[in-house]
Amino acid sequence: MKQDTIVYHEPECRTEVNNLKLLRITLSKEHTKIDFGYQANDYYIKGGWVKIGAETFIRMKGSKIKYRLIKGDNIPIGPEKHHFKTTQDWLYFSLYFPEIPIRHGLIELIENEPIKFNDFNFWDILLDGEKGYEVN
């Protein structure tokens, strides 16, 4: 594709985290931005907490090249945490990674390896070129 910046809405993916939704991926020459929505739940009395591990990375499926987290927007990088006050709280946040060289294919987002329960991990995230929209 010739476009500079492409956005994908709610790409198909696999994850074990029920209350975290991968909402949008924006691919540009500057970075890869991934938007998430987190809904606190009653597993913890006051909704618990969230953070993102500093080691978080994305990679293309089958590749060993890791594109490491540059920054988080509206979410603290561990060990700092964002503590919810109620089970009804929510958090919209974005993670920034370096530019990836594809516009179509499968990628993974891994918070840490080895994989741990409740980490923010997403596999088989489908960047479907047919469903990517050019950003103005």
Binding site: E10, L23, D35, G37, Y133, V135
Partner: peptide, 17 residues
């Protein structure tokens, strides 16, 4: 426009166009 919407009613996020 593309934006994220959070529904107070359903406690749910969605990406919208």
């Amino acid at each position: 426009i593309s934006f994220i919407h959070y529904s107070y009613r359903n406690n749910e996020f969605n990406a919208n166009m």
